[in-house]
Design a protein around this nucleic acid. Structure first.
Length: 552
DNA sequence: AACGTTGTCAACCGCTCGTCA
DNA sequence: CTGACGAGCGGTTGACAACGT
């Protein structure tokens, strides 16, 4: 072995310009006084290490140098083996499935590269980390969102469901889920995606606004803007996933959900590839507008000027710049998220805060988002007031302004349209248009729904295949969470134009230009396999839909 | 062609955690 | 209980290539 080392030093050592470095005593010199090499590994060194591992197995890396004569420290050996030499390593670009999974995992566990790698056979933590960091940089520069909307929505959903089943991701043996379950389903998902390459749905995932803005506002960074078109079906695997949400202790290690980086890897690959730009974002020249609409939600801004230049790449997971914490909540300590408008960062009305004492707020941003979404849609009162954050606004106040239609021309400038809430209104409008059956259940009888909600209800009723046979009046219909607890998702290519985007807190009708085509739910509990023909829907009364044909 | 920017990759560094004497 | 040690993890850096201006 020593001879091999000698060979390395004499002949194999690369003549690379920067040449192999030798560890100085301060950081790597072995205890035996051998000068340990640093820098790129040579093939000879690799051979030594491989041979050593073959004979001795992995581990005890510090013994490698002693036994093999390899002039590398144990850490370096371990890294080299793990990242380059161990068998079954998968090289090359990440597949779409892997990218999706990375995003999903990152949304769940944050920068836990090793844990991610555990779910990506053949991939190393370093690879994943590099990949993700590169993506972050790119998205930050472009002002693009990070996570796929579906990931976020799923997180939201699971955050609620996981409240009672919270546990560490790694503690639940959910590895199988990812490796066995989601992989298969990702296949479906990306098959669908591929199939739609030429015509992905113009899905404006309105609810994402809220998610985006939770983070956006919390982070004060457009980098974290997540408002993006939903380009991928809300995939079944999410539902099937047994991956529980993070335990509150994990999720809120710092008091909030570990969405350290918000990005949507689908955005640049898909949305841009298909030339999608939001109505607020007419084209590449303003590709950040989606984020702008959130950036402006800092309370008063009415412009769409991006503000991400000064944003640190990785901000603490939650910050509430310029937020008066003292006015947040009603009970100390003020939750980081619970009492803050996810879009504006402004305190939520007390009524909202108090509306559900059992809310899963403490699970994190997305939880808060979901819950707040429910509250918002239920209370339906805090975006209508254009001039204040008051919680006294009445549902009717916002009815007209909440023409929800993010595509509505007159609402192109959201800041102007609904200031000071800016994008907040988008959320509320989204919520309004959403067929949030929670709201229906709870509020409609009291006539607390605004006009849009009623429209949404109407549309929802229209969606109901046979309300009579089903015995499902609006009030009788399952709550959204029930629906989502069920097994549903869009059916891929068939949904390239129209989608029903449902999550725990809302069901948003999102259409394309062929509104005549049907939606299809798959809901085991409700209407498995049923096709809900939207032809019967009063489209013009469905804000979220009626403008879809105006999409670019 | 020169230069700057960006992306990718590999490796190192510092820290934390678990184990063990 | 405590300190030493090894292993592992996440962050960071540097080299290099590709690309655009």
């Amino acid at each position: 072995m020593s001879q091999m080392v000698h060979d390395i030093d004499d002949g194999e050592l690369p003549s690379e310009q920067n040449g192999p470095q030798l560890n100085d005593e301060s950081n790597g010199g072995s205890a035996s006084g051998v000068i340990l090499k640093k820098g790129p590994w040579t093939s000879a060194e690799d051979g030594i290490l491989v041979e050593y591992v073959k004979q001795h197995g992995e581990g005890n890396w510090n013994a490698v140098q002693k036994h093999s004569g390899l002039s590398r420290c144990g850490k370096s050996c371990r890294l080299r083996w793990a990242n380059h030499l161990r068998p079954n390593l998968k090289k090359g670009a990440f597949t779409a499935e892997e990218e999706w999974l990375i995003a999903e995992l990152h949304a769940k566990i944050g920068n836990k590269w090793a844990r991610m790698a555990a779910h990506l056979p053949g991939r190393t933590d370093n690879e994943i980390k590099n990949y993700w960091n590169t993506r972050i940089k790119r998205h930050q520069r472009a002002g693009l969102p990070l996570y796929p909307s579906e990931v976020r929505l799923q997180e939201s959903k699971e955050s609620q469901q996981g409240q009672s089943t919270a546990g560490k991701i790694g503690d639940r043996g959910h590895t199988g889920f990812l490796l066995e379950n989601s992989y298969q389903k990702h296949d479906i998902l990306f098959d669908s995606l591929n199939a739609n390459q030429g015509g992905l749905p113009y899905v404006l995932d309105i609810p994402d606004i809220s998610a985006n803005n939770i983070l956006l506002k919390g982070l004060g960074s457009s980098q974290h803007c997540n408002f993006l078109p939903s380009t991928l079906p809300y995939h079944k695997h999410f539902h099937d996933s047994t991956m529980p949400f993070l335990s509150s202790s994990e999720v809120t290690r710092n008091g909030f959900y570990p969405l350290h980086h918000i990005q949507d890897y689908t955005y640049d690959k898909i949305a841009q590839s298909i030339g999608y730009y939001s109505p607020l974002n007419p084209g590449p020249s303003s590709q950040n507008s989606l984020c702008y609409s959130h950036s402006l939600s800092n309370g008063n801004s009415s412009t769409s000027k991006p503000t991400f230049e000064a944003v640190k790449l990785e901000l603490p997971s939650l910050q509430y710049p310029e937020t008066d914490l003292s006015s947040w909540g009603t009970s100390p300590p003020p939750p980081l998220l619970d009492s803050v408008d996810v879009l504006t960062g402004t305190p939520l009305p007390t009524s909202l805060l108090e509306s559900d004492s059992s809310s899963p707020y403490n699970s994190g941003l997305l939880d808060a988002l979901l819950h707040q979404s429910k509250n918002l849609s239920s209370s339906n009162n805090h975006c209508s007031d254009k001039s204040s954050n008051s919680s006294t606004a009445t549902p009717g106040d916002r009815a007209d302004s909440s023409t929800l239609y993010v595509y509505e021309p007159e609402c192109e400038d959201y800041a102007d349209c609904v200031s000071p809430f800016g994008a907040t209104s988008m959320l509320n409008e989204c919520l309004a248009v959403s067929t949030n059956r929670n709201s229906f259940d709870e509020l409609q009888p009291a006539q607390t729904l605004n006009e849009n909600t009623l429209k949404a209800e109407s549309a929802y009723q229209a969606l109901t295949p046979n309300s009579e046979d089903q015995g499902m009046s609006m009030l009788d219909m399952p709550r959204p969470d029930v629906l989502l607890d069920s097994d549903w998702y869009e059916l891929g290519p068939a949904f390239t134009k129209n989608q029903v985007d449902v999550n725990n807190s809302r069901a948003t009708l999102i259409g394309g230009d062929d509104l005549g085509s049907g939606f299809k739910y798959m809901s085991e509990e409700i209407s498995s396999g049923q096709v809900w023909n939207l032809d019967s829907c009063t489209w013009n009364n469905m804000p979220a839909v009626c403008q879809m044909s105006d999409l670019p």
